[in-house]
């Protein structure tokens, strides 16, 4: 049964941030992540006719994005041989035979599990933000994630500071409830 519809005009507003966060934890580069999101939208446009409506628009776009991320890594790996850095062992007789790896500090000081958990938390937050009314969601994002000044947001939306705090209050209450159900 086909229930989901597709509307490319709303993709950037609705899904770009979610896709961006999904990508950035996998490629760790803002510009590349943004490019991959854009490429995903283009690929989505090209294959719109294949959308059967069985999955949600977002799930469908994520499946395209996953392929784009894999392609990105394939591309990098095919260049790997060319960019290989060759390091010679030290000729110092005292350290002869020591592996280079043994002489550098282990850069790993984080906890992989908590990193993964934090990435998943980011996506859970996005899921909750999507449930907010559109204006609330935009203003909450601007204030909380992008760190805009109260005055700048008020000017942009032509609202008073009191109105802004009422919107933020409603958004925060809904977000806390949603995360309590799905995360905490």
């Amino acid at each position: 049964m086909s229930t989901n519809t597709i509307d490319p005009n709303t993709w950037v507003d609705k899904y770009s941030d979610y896709l961006f966060n999904y990508t950035i934890v996998r490629v760790d580069d803002k510009e590349i992540a943004q490019d991959l999101v854009q490429e995903t939208f283009f690929a989505g446009l090209k294959s719109m006719k294949n959308f059967k409506g069985e999955a949600s628009e977002r799930t469908w776009l994520i499946s395209i994005l996953k392929r784009k991320i894999i392609d990105h890594y394939r591309k990098i790996n095919s260049n790997k041989g060319k960019a290989e850095v060759r390091i010679n062992y030290s000729t110092d007789s005292e350290t002869e035979g020591d592996w280079l790896e043994e002489r550098v500090a282990d850069p790993f000081d984080g906890n992989a599990e908590s990193e993964i958990e934090n990435d998943e938390l980011g996506l859970a937050i996005h899921n909750c933000m999507e449930k907010l009314p559109e204006k609330q969601s935009i203003i909450f994002k601007m204030k909380t994630i992008q760190g805009f000044d109260t005055e700048a947001i008020c000017n942009e939306f032509d609202i008073t500071a009191s109105n802004l705090w009422v919107i933020i209050h409603r958004a925060r209450t809904a977000m806390a409830e949603c995360l309590e159900k799905n995360w905490f």
Partner: peptide
């Protein structure tokens, strides 16, 4: 708790100017 979660998540957003460019290209 919500503030802590938001900080911990490293959540990011595409700047609105870049979103406008994306929309234009898509259009």
């Amino acid at each position: 708790k919500l503030t802590k979660a938001m900080d911990k998540s490293n959540i990011q957003s595409i700047p609105s100017t870049d979103k406008e460019v994306m929309k234009q290209k898509l259009q």
